[in-house]
Design a protein around this nucleic acid. Structure first.
Lengths: 225, 225
DNA sequence: CACCATCGCAACTCCGAGTTGCGTTATGGT
DNA sequence: ACCATAACGCAACTCGGAGTTGCGATGGTG
């Protein structure tokens, strides 16, 4: 029942899993198994990715037999989905520093921090896999993105009230432009991301928004007269 | 030896494959097999994705036996790599309309067209899979992106010479900002993309560049004084 | 300390990757 | 037209991972 050869960050994931497991039912030794298996799943996800993730390997890493895994989850997908859903929740704070510059920069930086954290890398491993064809997993991803969009709205609203941005600025468009370069570098171009990446994204997004290029129903680039 | 139940777009892929197969060696019936198998591979990639791609299925779709596939390619990965490398080449023209607006918009639009074409969707299916862990496939993807970066440079250079953009504008940063929202919507957020998406990206990128937010070694968003 | 849910274990089935030996067909040179 | 040979078809394998099943062992709870 002991998690073998797991780094500190994964143990940390295990702890993160333990707190919100508000499932009703007989909480015997079963809960320890659940935490151990899900933590092992995330660790395997980071180490080997989704395709190479073996139920047998996960079970061994969790110090549990393969059969036990199949008794608590229907199949491999279910384990992964369960491991991920416990992870996508309250991850990012909505900044309110008083200026758009600082708010956007903090938003971008916190995304970078999350994506490069163990949890983020586990999610990343799944995004970069055929697992997105699994509806439940695509739903997890969709909720994550929608959550980001929602969190940006108050930031944009406050900025407009302060007169820092045009009144017609589209919050969704703005956040998409803010986080797209970060996701692009990480998931598509396989380029490194750091604080500077976040800062440049914030700077560029702010410039575009101030110029009115992110306004609602904005016309396309004007044709030459 | 006949390609069965393949849509027109895939047949078109087969034609695209046929022209540049400048491989030396005995060109007997073997060449027909190669084209059929690679076309079938792309079709399967689009239909089922990389993880669910079966060599047996590919062989049947190509009207060929499984062993034949294994005689010409070492394994499943090699087939996919071969099918993709023949595809990433000369896909996009470098626009030179006379204005940055039109050039950037055309660049973005042509990317959208390519990504939503059969070839682009096949590549997309591989990007969204554990196949990116295969070095050769990651290399294909890297070359594709680098190719885009290279093509943007003259566009930016000409714009600077015309005085439309700041002299310090970073071409790579500019193109990244241009194509990131498109790739983000498609590969990460699973949102639809169309011409309007391309136009908005071009508009926003242009605004940011004009404001100097995409200059080389640009400082981060200025802290409050 | 006894009960019962839970777990470990071994032995399965199923399916796809990749291999091997041999018989069969098509292609190019004469 | 004919034949040598390279390429293909076919069946029968091995190997490993996804799930499943029956039974015996174990640990938490009253």
């Amino acid at each position: 029942m002991v998690i073998v050869s797991v780094s500190d960050e994964i143990t940390q994931l295990g702890v993160a899993l333990e707190r919100d497991s508000g499932r009703a039912g007989p909480v015997g030794r079963g809960e320890k198994v659940r935490v151990a298996v899900l933590a092992a799943t995330l660790a395997e996800l980071i180490d080997r990715g989704y395709a190479a993730l073996t139920v047998d390997q996960v079970a061994q890493r969790a110090g549990v037999h393969k059969t036990t895994v199949y008794r608590r989850w229907t199949d491999r997908q279910a384990v992964v989905v369960d491991a991920l859903t416990d992870l996508v929740g309250g991850s990012i704070q909505i900044p309110d520093s008083g200026t758009v510059e600082d708010d956007l920069r903090e938003l971008a930086r916190s995304l970078v921090r999350w994506l490069t954290s163990p949890a983020g890398r586990a999610v990343h491993a799944v995004i970069q896999s055929d697992a997105v064809r699994v509806p439940e997993i695509a739903e997890v991803q969709r909720r994550f993105i929608q959550d980001r969009y929602r969190r940006a709205e108050p930031v944009v609203r406050r900025a407009i009230e302060r007169g820092e941005l045009p009144a017609e600025t589209d919050p969704t468009d703005l956040l998409r432009m803010l986080i797209a370069p970060i996701h692009f570098r990480l998931h598509v171009a396989a380029e490194p991301v750091d604080e500077a990446t976040a800062d440049r994204a914030a700077r560029a997004t702010l410039a575009a928004a101030r110029a009115g290029a992110l306004n609602r129903q904005a016309a396309t680039v004007s044709d030459r007269p």
